[in-house]
């Protein structure tokens, strides 16, 4: 049976009882964070764009920022019965896509800052991270099959490869 596909667009948070295939397409400097509670069988994914919410602007979409997106993902999963202490996560993304041209070095290094910010959230919230594929220059498509628990990452030049399995095994 083909699993339902849940496309997680920029700044979006998707949660569901296990089953669907969560997809973050073409993660550049953004981060995709997949989360799963193996007991409650609740899965979710957030597509974070920036490290932290702007101090001077209201947060229109909590999924946009690492410091609001990760807590919101957990909150939405909790509503389906997930418990933070059991949640396992995996993350991918945070690349520097524009790697040619004068001033490209360092200018658009938001990918690394995103990865650091998401990781800080994961640690602060006491989540166990089973797999991480961040940094570099390559954009990534990340999929999370919440039926099997398998997290896969593919880039434009490499074959799809398994990153980890949020159901253990």
């Amino acid at each position: 049976m083909v699993a339902t596909q849940l496309l997680v667009g920029m700044a979006e948070i998707q949660v569901a009882k296990e089953g669907p295939l969560f997809v973050c397409l073409g993660l550049g400097s953004c981060i995709g964070l997949a989360a799963y509670d193996p007991v409650a069988k609740v899965a979710g994914m957030v597509h974070v764009m920036l490290p932290a919410a702007f101090a001077d602007k209201p947060v229109d979409k909590p999924g946009k920022f690492a410091d609001t997106g990760v807590p919101h993902l957990l909150e939405q999963m909790a509503r389906l019965g997930a418990s933070r202490s059991r949640i396992l996560v995996a993350m991918a993304g945070g690349a520097q896509v524009f790697n040619f041209g004068s001033g490209s070095a360092g200018k658009l290094d938001i990918g690394r800052r995103n990865a650091d910010a998401v990781e800080a959230q994961v640690q602060a919230l006491g989540l166990r991270c089973l797999g991480k594929d961040v940094g570099g220059n390559q954009g990534r498509t990340m999929t999370f099959d919440s039926g099997s628990g398998l997290i896969k990452v593919r880039t434009v030049t490499s074959m799809e490869r398994a990153l980890c399995n949020l159901k253990g095994s």
Binding site: L25, G26, G28, C30, F98, F100, G101, K107, G139
Partner: peptide, 16 residues
């Protein structure tokens, strides 16, 4: 600046 990448990843970086 130049990127050679998946279309979505390039556009994401710009939107960001």
């Amino acid at each position: 600046l130049l990127a050679v990448e998946m279309a979505a990843a390039i556009l994401q970086a710009i939107v960001l």
